[in-house]
């Protein structure tokens, strides 16, 4: 599988720093986001994710460095090309759904006729058509989140920024929204997806950046990152392993799971060496598999590393 980065850069952050009076929210951050790929913006709470996103959306400006969309510095003029679903989000409580959606569309420069067409389309797709004339307070929380998503994509933005889009959603709606995001992802759309949930990031993102304490910790293609971390974990099932797994020059750590054993290879030991030694020792193997570290493992390891 060729996963070399080929698509063109749409959003480029160069040496971005943002300070608030007494602390630095983002420090010297640089990254590229490519069209047609979902970009995962990862980090623990308070790492500086929301501040960075606000700079991409043009709500605040960096103190140093630049954020560009297709080579043009972010400003109010570019806001119509970006759709932003904030982490903390809401709707007007007493207003009809259709009126709010029209207003949000108008603020992004979509005319009423075009907006109405798209509103009907999206409400149909989200199975919310009969709620069009209802007020926010009549809707369940999950429905409200779907409406918020519609408000984000009504103007058909080329850059879609979703900050923790699944928080508070039930599993069925998470699945549903993931499918919608997947459909939205075409060659000329850029999706930035911010989360602290590594499982979802792993499923959706091709490229990631991991930040902690205002700084970049890790970045690049998810595949490459995993490969660079991989190759030292093996899952085993079988019998007659003998004393081999107790040999700390061969295996640095052994974890027994319900139906297999996970071993971490010692430095300089490849999986081939372990396999050969096991076979030589007369073990009977029903499973021998190199496993990749999960993004969660990488996340924890790197965040712990920078915290210390």
């Amino acid at each position: 599988m060729s996963d070399t980065v080929s698509a063109e850069v749409t959003i480029r952050a160069s040496n971005v720093t943002k300070r608030f009076s007494d602390f630095t929210a983002v420090e010297d951050l640089s990254f590229d986001v490519r069209a047609g790929r979902v970009f995962g913006f990862l980090g623990p709470n308070g790492a500086g994710k929301t501040t960075t996103i606000r700079m991409i959306v043009g709500i605040t400006a960096p103190d140093q460095g630049t954020v560009e969309l297709n080579g043009e510095r972010i400003s109010y003029r570019l806001q119509n090309r970006i759709g932003y679903l904030p982490e903390e989000r809401g709707l007007y409580k007493k207003m009809r759904i259709v009126d709010q959606l029209r207003y949000f569309a108008a603020l992004k420069g979509v005319g009423t006729a075009e907006a109405d067409k798209r509103i009907d389309e999206w409400l149909g797709r989200m199975q919310l058509s009969e709620w069009k004339r209802k007020r926010t307070t009549d809707l369940s929380k999950g429905m409200q989140q779907k409406i918020q998503f519609i408000a984000t994509v009504l103007h058909d933005p080329e850059v879609l920024i979703l900050d923790e889009p699944f928080s508070g959603l039930d599993p069925i709606n998470v699945e549903f929204l993931m499918d919608v995001i997947d459909e939205y992802k075409t060659a000329d759309k850029t999706i930035i997806f911010s989360t602290h949930l590594m499982e979802t990031a792993e499923r959706l993102c091709k490229d990631i950046i991991l930040i902690n304490k205002a700084r970049k910790v890790l970045g690049g293609s998810l595949r490459e990152i995993k490969e660079s971390y991989g190759k030292n974990l093996v899952a085993l099932r079988g019998s007659n392993f003998g004393p081999l797994l107790g040999d700390r020059t061969l295996v640095s750590k052994v974890v027994s799971n319900a139906d297999d054993i996970e071993v971490q290879l010692a430095n300089g030991v490849s999986s081939g060496i372990l396999l050969k030694k096991l076979v030589d020792a007369g073990s009977s193997l029903t499973k021998f598999e190199e496993i990749e570290p999960s993004l969660n493992d990488i996340f924890i390891e790197r965040v712990k590393g920078t915290d210390e």
Partner: peptide, 17 residues
Amino acid sequence: VEEKETRIAEILFSSAR
């Protein structure tokens, strides 16, 4: 206060000055 309380402000500020 409603726009601030419901965080609609964040969406509005990403759309207009």
